[in-house]
Nucleic acid binder design. Sequence first.
DNA 1: CCAGATTTGTTCGTATGTATC
DNA 2: CGATACATACGAACAAATCTG
Lengths: 228, 228
Amino acid sequence: MQIHDHFVELIASGEWESGKLLESENELARKLAVSVGTVRKALDVLEAGHLVSRRQGRGTTVNDQSSDEFNIHFSNLRIGDGQRVTGTISSVDVEEAEADANEQRQLKLKKGDTVFRCVRVREYHGRRFMFERLAITKKLLPDLDEAQFSIARVVAIAAKRNGILLGTGTEKVCVNTADPEVSKALSIAPGTPLLRLDRVINMMDGMPLEWRVADCHLQEKYYMTDFV
Amino acid sequence: MQIHDHFVELIASGEWESGKLLESENELARKLAVSVGTVRKALDVLEAGHLVSRRQGRGTTVNDQSSDEFNIHFSNLRIGDGQRVTGTISSVDVEEAEADANEQRQLKLKKGDTVFRCVRVREYHGRRFMFERLAITKKLLPDLDEAQFSIARVVAIAAKRNGILLGTGTEKVCVNTADPEVSKALSIAPGTPLLRLDRVINMMDGMPLEWRVADCHLQEKYYMTDFV
DNA sequence: CCAGATTTGTTCGTATGTATC
DNA sequence: CGATACATACGAACAAATCTG
């Protein structure tokens, strides 16, 4: 884990930039004065966290956490044969505010901390299907401004700029019905049953960074999980 | 994987009975004429599949796949602080029939194969909350009869009797509204939005064994998944 | 198309750390 | 307190995939 954390630091600091082909396991082991097995295990953990990709005969490369391939693993929405989908953003509304009680609890903030609040609509193949409300800890992303929220994966991109690495997340799923605001945004009848996705994404140190509550009109899409 | 499969065979055949404390890694390695590292890796995979539990200083024990602790990992329904729940069965209706087209597809059956079809209602703290329809491949569980379906985990228990080990599973989640049958069974208004859980449980060789479609009136419960 | 070098994947055998009984 | 078991690490070797000239 010491070696792992060292590697995380190298990635977060930008010393290991995304796309870079790392030195071989043997070289890393020699430079860090540990066994290759130890380097291997650290890289295994990094790979499990989607931070690097490894291929026999080729080497180990650093993944870009602002890329779509990285971020799509935070979506359990799927289509057709099981491919994950996120859609694209079709409308945005941003404000900056003091965190309310819920935001303080979800993002582990103190009274008086500020958040970005963002309301967005996502569409897929030209059809609006998701109404999402985001709350993002502002102090961790000081260079983030309201103009940027129209692009997908803002948080991941801003996190990368600020040397923050995304880690785990949890999502609660339940059923909700369209209130007037949502029904208008998605052009569906009020009261339409929707899938509500309540998701928190944490940083690698375990602290939450983004809280999203999304109401989702599934249409041909479905939510899927695996049991192991 | 050869060692892993060998261990699976020992568990499925009953030679390693549940609750048994295994020989140490060193002994297993010596008897199988492989390195301890190889035994460790095989045991790691078994543990990931919930077939054994390991504790430093104590040893490795075989889990009982018919136990509640094993089966609860196929449920993503949670309550309060995040504890998984399955509830208890409050009503049952069973029939034996030739698999229809959907059942053939989901359970990878051939035309003419027979299934158990079972309609059950689950309750939690005295409140009925889930209406589930099961389809189970009959030929794999020849000793299963209709009288047994009133107990939870029938399939896991029958599978154990027949030397079958449960492996992975997938679950699709979407939104559904209560039709007359479900609304009557759960004592809720017709049209009430419900969470629909469409789940297939596979055996360790990857072949499906049970298909369940459940409509769920969540109440204070919620469905939760983790991102890694 | 092939030969050789490089890199990860897998296994081996041993040694030490640490939790449990 | 000692014996035992899993957890972690070490260093070496070979297999298999990949890349290069």
